[in-house]
Design a binder for these strands. Structure first.
Lengths: 337, 337
DNA sequence: TTTGCTGTTGCAATCGTTTGTATTTTATTT
DNA sequence: AAATAAAATACAAACGATTGCAACAGCAAA
């Protein structure tokens, strides 16, 4: 490997001090025009590029954000869940628009390490954490809550960190209302209600029933984590148990799609026999057959909000938790004709 | 913000020199047990964490890889294409297994800048570039080809960089053979044959025809870029033109799914009327209705190969371009009963 | 010619580590 | 107890930039 050229080398060649080179390269008005030009040319000629590490050390800053996706084994959700990936894409977009680069970290259950590493070592100036992954107090305990961190997730009431998330309660309510208004009576809730976000969606589910003086049946809860395969198997088993239901509200699109698959595999028609509504509105929801009715988490917007908030925080402004509006996207999977 | 504690501060409190602190924290055998213990405790107590930037500068290394996804406007492919996102996930996984963090960069058409920034400034020790995005010689021109770079893409013959990619020719051949063996006669090729990867798949497509002494019909090419919506519209228009065909081989899963949608919207049945085969085997291919027959790019494996190669290169070993085997995943979308 | 500007440049400290070498302390041997 | 070896620690120089301040040039005014 060719030894990389440094500023000192450039200075030597130009016959000036490194400070002059530095100023020239940074467009300082302190440098005379011809000198500046000479240095610029020399830099281009030699292919000089500033050493980011050195600059960062001196300036005590680096335009870096971190995103960590803690995949707890309990949620069984994987990095390949389109929701995560789309969120990474959205955050990446937003960050690059603000001139920040993004470090992505996907630890596997070894709790705080990733957050600590990225943030405290100063590799990133701020951190975005996607999902509480069932360990709500992890950040509190790590003493990281007051740092430059934004968490995407569901409101739990007992956190110290800044939280951004969709309006899970309202989302659940909208979806359920939709199904009830379609004349569906017995709606199966598919999702792990111990996870904060899912719990809120479930509350919205109940609220919608109450609004219409409908009752919910505790037998109509299928507690599955975020893994698609588990949902598929569980639902088939559930159907075999002959409990009656005419609609499904699933806590994620992946879950919903798995449910549709399971139903179709048993000869049931969606949406004729059973209406299905999902949650997230990932890109592929539009592409399933039938296209999936779902609650839009507005991933692109959520990512942007998180990045903007985080950068504000980094700059020293005070910021507040924020809720991203959700809306129902009605497609074919719920409409029985 | 609380001033961050430094090694010097720690040394002061422990009453030793910073060099001793450094060695203690790094587990050097040069420091006495009790001293080490004292320093460790002090570090834990004060929440000290090493400053990564300083360490990187001194050690002339940082455990960082970069991944850049150049989204040329011509390909109309976006970061939200599940293939890209899954690749990011796979690379992230592989990198973290090797103790590397990953910087993700998604420039929008401003060519070399991202590569230069990441690699030459030393922010990343190596770079993975996903897709040549139609600008095959970009890297060659940027004089980056001999650097620590791995490109994911299709073999073009005239590149200087290390290339990893699926066996596009064989993939195209496999898919086509499958359709022909099913008795399909007029297969529509959907994809932009000017892109290197697609061109190779198309060659495989022709080769399979030749193998069976079938002819290909140039009218049966639908040149669409990677955008799903365009494919949907184009195919509907194509069908309206009444050219006869009984199968589709699409250059990506997103394209294939869009085609299925378009066909269904026109009342055609997949796979009864028309067999469809995709390319990529993204996660959602299994979840469509009917499930998608597709060529497996083996994304997880490809990502791992790239990371492993790249790290070898960084270590100074010499490496070579590599082809990832492809295989056909047969699902329902192609089998007419 | 001297004084005083203004505009350029150089000097040197600094950011927070790591690491080769010198120096001190402790243990071992005679 | 003195000499010597071994173990533990301190010193100081890097790494490659940025930046406050001092120094020096050239030029105009006195």
């Amino acid at each position: 490997m060719v030894r990389k050229i440094t500023m000192a080398e450039l200075a030597r060649r130009a016959g000036v001090d490194v400070s002059t080179v530095s100023r020239a390269l940074n467009g300082s008005p302190l440098v005379k025009k011809p000198t500046k030009k000479l240095i610029m040319e020399l830099a281009k000629e030699t292919g000089y590029v500033v050493n980011a590490t050195a600059r960062d050390l001196r300036k005590q800053t680096n335009q870096m954000l971190g995103i960590v996706i803690p995949l707890s084994s309990e949620s069984d959700q994987s990095i390949s869940d389109p929701f995560f990936l789309e969120m990474v894409g959205a955050v990446s977009h937003a960050a690059s628009e603000q001139g920040y680069d993004l470090i992505i970290s996907t630890p596997k259950d070894n709790n705080q390490i990733a957050e600590r590493n990225l943030l405290l070592t100063g590799r990133a100036e701020g951190l975005i954490v996607i999902g509480q992954a069932g360990r709500t107090n992890r950040l509190n305990e790590a003493g990281l809550a007051d740092k430059n961190i934004i968490v995407w997730g569901g409101e739990t009431g007992d956190h110290d960190y800044t939280l951004v998330g969709s309006d899970n309660f309202n989302g659940g309510r909208l979806a359920t209302e939709h199904l009830l208004s379609l004349g569906r009576k017995r709606i199966l809730f598919v999702g792990e209600t111990t996870l904060p976000e899912v719990a809120l969606r479930f509350e919205g589910f109940r609220a919608a029933h109450n609004d219409r003086n409908c009752t919910t049946d505790d037998a109509l809860i299928l507690p599955v984590n975020f893994g698609g395969q588990t949902a598929y198997d569980s639902l088939r088993k559930f159907v075999a148990s002959n409990k009656e239901f005419d609609a499904i509200f699933a806590a994620s699109d992946v879950l919903a799609i798995a449910c549709i698959q399971a139903l179709q595999s048993l000869g049931k028609s969606v949406p004729k026999d059973i209406s299905v509504v999902g949650y997230d509105n990932v890109g592929l929801a539009r592409l399933t057959t039938p296209a999936l009715t779902t609650v839009d988490q507005n991933i692109e917007r959520g990512g942007k909000i998180m990045v903007d908030l985080l950068i504000k925080k980094i700059r020293g402004d005070s910021i507040q938790s924020q809720v991203v509006e959700t809306s129902l996207i009605v497609r074919r999977s719920s409409i029985p004709e």
